[in-house]
Write a protein that binds this DNA or RNA. Structure first.
Length: 576
RNA sequence: GCCCCCGUAGCUCAGUGGAUAGAGCAGUGGUUUCCUAAACCAUGUGCGCGGGUUCGAUUCCCGCCGGGGGCACCA
């Protein structure tokens, strides 16, 4: 489909230049023409406020400028009428073109690209990326829904999209998981846990009950043969189990990653240390016990290095505006998380993606900045990496904010949430808000309102269409060869808004804001339901040829709703 | 101390340098011989405060106030 605002903007720009050439407008630099849809749909389908902007450079009142522009305007054939109101140039879509849109929407279908802004480009969306140390909790869930919806929107915008899950299996967290696994295994065997597997209170690091179950499985599979064994078999067993669990959960909300990329592979391939060498070769690395540049002020005294402490390896991130340099290799010789993270992003960009989207929690802001500095230091283009920072989700239950911690084992998991509501409700509620906005997820409300939700309101629009087609088939009514000129004002009202589908997808993709789709879907459903109630198809007083046209219209509407539901990762049920 | 996000209707949240700031939920009152009432119709004195830029600011800038997150030789 076409991006109408773009088309209109070009014609307005051309008209201004033509007016200047003809001497109707004085010479001045023509600013970018912005076309927007007015808030109030009855005012116009699209409007330009360019005449107001030109009042000063042109030295004329806006209405006069608008009239001059319109005089020179060669409007696209999608436009039925142009009028000047209070200095605005208002554009209305032609009714004939809108009726033709019915066929366009049906032919475009519910999957695949709607527009071609991403044609020939590759996009990658990295999301979830939770370390496999336990079930997915709701904090990660938001990023999961946002990331997958983002991927779907980019696909609709024409990009070839890959979904990636990055996980860290080289660090302390996974060792703690392995120790906790061994702790529970010893327990299952009726033995006392090893002292090194206990935290300061003699408990396992990860306290989740799932490890107790897995210990039983491990005991059943291996008996006591692992008694006295080192950590690796426990780590491997736990990691496999955790991933099976995470994938099963994600499958419930129809999220499937193309690539699972693990940190260990960056060590195996040597990329981590090559990254360090590359940084060093460019003069961004030094050894010291304290940073050379540290402009941070405040209460950091407790972390002040002790005299004579061994030297760490630092990255001069301050060269790129960071307030202090960052450690990339600890004095122990181990890399911090930062180094493999930079290596990972170099790896990603070198795979040739035109755009990489990372969905991260807001608490990763600083880390993401350091990675950007690292990419710049290594002559990669950081602007190709766009990070969606997802603000925190706070769980509210019984009017109180719940603290969640994976290690305490009392979290609300994504699985719990799906069980309490539904996969569709979870997907919608977690992706339908701006990532920038912190959200309260009221569990009681989510359960209570699950029958009065926008989720069902949108799905019901699809279901009602499906109902007509079932009944039409029984009565032998078809939309084949429908005469679309028989469509009325109500249908055109819906089609006017549906014509903005490409605009919404373009904006959602360009601004990396999948929630725009959710609001658009709700608005369309809002337009749809009243129309459905008044525009009858299978009614004794509706002439057959009108019925056919309306049926065709509802097929287009159904297709649009299916596409919107697809983009949000929601199901389109035939009945409810 | 510094950096980032947020502050819009009773609640949860959209939104925009421009024409009368919107949705859902909750509340109240109505609607069904015909494609599912998970629907429709009616009902709304709100952009945290103070400056600035602009023809025009809820939107951009600065300063406050309030909420959240970050400023590790953790990942």
């Amino acid at each position: 489909m076409k991006l109408l605002p773009q088309e209109i903007a070009h014609s307005v720009d051309a008209a201004i230049r033509a007016a200047q050439a003809a001497g109707d407008l004085p010479a001045f630099d023509v600013p970018e023409v912005k076309i927007s849809a007015p808030k109030r749909a009855e005012q116009a389908d699209y409007a330009a406020s360019i005449a107001m902007q030109l009042a000063k450079p042109a030295g004329m009142p806006p209405p006069r400028i608008a009239e001059i522009i319109v005089k020179h305007l060669k409007a696209p054939k999608t436009i039925g009428s142009v009028e000047v109101v209070a200095g605005y140039i208002n554009f209305n879509l032609s009714d004939d073109w809108l009726r033709g849109l019915v066929e366009t929407l049906i032919n475009d279908g519910a999957d695949g690209a709607v527009i071609d802004v991403g044609a020939g480009k590759r996009a990658q969306v990295e999301f979830v990326s939770a370390n496999p140390t336990g079930p997915l909790h709701i904090g990660r869930s938001r990023g999961a829904m946002v990331g997958d919806a983002m991927a779907r929107v980019l696909q609709a915008a024409g990009y070839a999209v890959e979904r990636e899950y990055y996980f860290n299996n080289a660090g302390q967290q996974m060792n703690n998981l392995a120790r906790s696994m061994r702790y529970r295994y010893y327990q299952a065997l009726g033995l006392s846990p090893l002292p090194e597997d206990c935290d300061e209170r003699g408990e396992p690091y990860y306290k989740g009950a799932y490890l107790i179950d897995y210990a039983e499985t491990l005991k059943a599979e291996r008996g006591d043969s692992l008694k006295g064994a080192d950590l690796p078999p426990f780590k491997q067993f736990a990691e496999e189990r955790m991933f099976a669990m995470i994938k099963a959960t994600l499958n419930r909300v129809d999220i499937h990653h193309d690539i699972f990329f693990n940190e260990n592979s960056l060590y195996d391939s040597g990329e981590v240390w090559r990254t360090l060498e590359a940084l060093d070769a460019r003069g961004y690395i030094y050894k010291a016990s304290v940073p050379e540049v540290d402009n941070t002020k405040g209460e950091k005294d407790e972390d002040a290095p002790e005299a004579g402490k061994a030297e760490a390896t630092w990255f001069r991130s301050s060269r790129f505006g960071d307030e202090k340099d960052r450690v990339v290799v600890k004095s122990t010789g181990d890399a911090t998380y930062t180094l493999p993270d930079i290596a990972y992003h170099v790896n990603k960009l070198d795979r040739g993606f035109d755009v990489c989207v990372n969905v991260l929690g807001a608490d990763h802001f600083k880390q993401a900045q350091v990675v950007q500095h690292g990419l710049r230091a290594l002559d990669r283009d950081p602007s190709k990496v766009h990070v969606i920072f997802v603000q925190m989700v706070r769980l509210v239950k019984d009017g109180e904010i719940m603290k969640s911690s994976t290690r305490a084992g009392n979290f609300e998991t994504l699985d719990d949430l799906i069980d309490e509501t539904s996969a569709d409700a979870v997907r919608y509620n977690l992706m339908a808000r701006s990532a920038d906005s912190q959200m309260n997820f009221d569990l009681d409300l989510a359960v209570k309102q699950s029958n009065e939700n926008p989720v069902y309101y949108i799905q019901y629009a699809y279901v009602r269409c499906a109902g007509i087609f079932r009944e039409a088939a029984l009565r032998g009514v078809t939309d084949v060869g429908a005469d679309l000129s028989l469509l009325g004002e109500a249908e055109l009202r819906f089609l006017r808004r549906a014509a903005q589908l490409p605009d919404v997808i373009e904006a959602s993709a360009r601004q990396f804001e999948p929630h725009q789709i959710a609001f658009y879907a709700l608005e369309l459903a809002n337009l749809f339901h009243p129309i459905f109630d008044t525009v009858r198809v299978l009614h004794s007083e509706v002439p057959p040829e009108v019925a056919a046209a309306r049926l065709r219209f509802f097929r287009a509407a159904q297709t649009v709703f299916k596409r919107l539901l697809n983009m949000m990762g929601m199901t389109a049920p035939e009945t409810m």
